[in-house]
Amino acid sequence: MNNSSEISPDTVRAICAAHAHRRGPTLEILHALQREFGFVPSSALPVIAEELNVTRAEVHGVFSFYHDLRDQPPPRHTVRVCRAEACQSMGARAVWDAAQRAASTTPSVEVSEVFCLGNCACSPAIQVDERTRGRMDPGRVTGIIEQLDREAS
């Protein structure tokens, strides 16, 4: 993953071209950019609009609708904490509070909320980068976040 904060228009055009044959490619192109660079810089949106022959507003509208898409470089690690009902029933509120507390002192880890990871049978659940971890408690989630931060620094 390349973490520079700008992506050249030619690179954006090449990614657009790679997806142009697909039906309804806008979201696919945004995904491809985020996969490649970790985020979608706002400067890429007018280039996509031009390539797809749609308005900038349309591309911005798609970008801003989806929780997953981000316009800033990502942190080293993301920890997503499930806050939905099946996790609530096993103490997710306390896990969320602990994760937020831990993240306030660990700059390389971003904690965000998610609503269901499909891990409801072994709740509460979190997702560390792409890996789902079950049966969390406040102590374990704190330990995981601090460990990630130590490894990153």
Partner: peptide
């Protein structure tokens, strides 16, 4: 078959919103 991956919008589980998203639009 082609796989299309969503982007974290619960509403896209509703079928018409899903179709909008599949077309590359806001869900």
């Amino acid at each position: 078959i082609e796989i299309r991956v969503g982007a974290g919008a619960y509403i896209c589980g509703e079928e018409t919103s899903l179709l909008e998203s599949l077309e590359g639009n806001r869900g």
